[in-house]
Design a binder for these strands. Structure first.
Lengths: 106, 106
DNA sequence: ATATTATGAAACTATTTGGTTGCAAATATA
DNA sequence: TATATTTGCAACCAAATAGTTTCATAATAT
């Protein structure tokens, strides 16, 4: 049972859930209203998101409010960092080419 | 058959392949040497990566060199953008709290 | 010309995934 | 107290996934 953040965001429904609860904390029922699948299916997605600590839960009576654990999202950003370094380097190279072209014009 | 970039990076082997070919273009055989699974399994991963345009291929004789399509990685960055906005806003709020505390000290 | 090498594709398999229905527990309301 | 609501969990199922073995094709080396 793989359960890391990359696996969590692979599913489009889960990405939609993340987008929803990023705005405001919501109950499973309220979240499920936004999808065609059953509440239980959404509940399963929430469990997966909770297992890799992408969401936090706050019990309020019989309702449970789910909200995004934004800190966890930084893990993806951290992973991207190495590739961002590459594309920024490429951009700078392009920049150098443009500068050279400019100088040749003179 | 879902085939988007999020699904592509969900698999740890594929992320490892991405990391490998980000450094330099490599043939399927050379890539496979870095893993325990068969060349064919790696080949399948490469096909998935190619299908969502995360890698580009360059034929050289009977060898095919695979390299990372860094532009495609920006799609993840673009998706992260909205959440980066959130955690930066939270950071600024924390910053404001610290400033207030500092002023109270005076 | 023949053998070797590099590769992709097809067929098959075990496991995982995302979904369903049904049920039990806890809380709120009449 | 009896009933309704909110939720999670277990059992089940179809489809997708990641892997394997086997085979075909094309390029290179002998």
């Amino acid at each position: 049972m793989r359960r890391d953040i990359f696996q969590a965001i692979a599913d489009p429904t889960r990405r939609a859930i993340i987008a929803l609860i990023a705005v405001q904390a919501m109950t499973p029922n309220a979240i499920a209203e936004n999808f065609n699948s059953t509440r239980q299916a959404v509940s399963k997605h929430l469990r997966i998101l909770a297992e890799c600590e992408l969401v936090k839960q706050e019990q309020q009576g019989r309702e449970i409010y789910y909200s995004l654990e934004i800190e966890k999202m930084k893990e993806i950003d951290k992973w991207l960092e190495q590739y961002r370094a590459i594309w920024e380097a490429q951009f700078n190279q392009l920049d150098n080419v443009l500068i050279k072209l400019k100088n040749q014009k003179k």
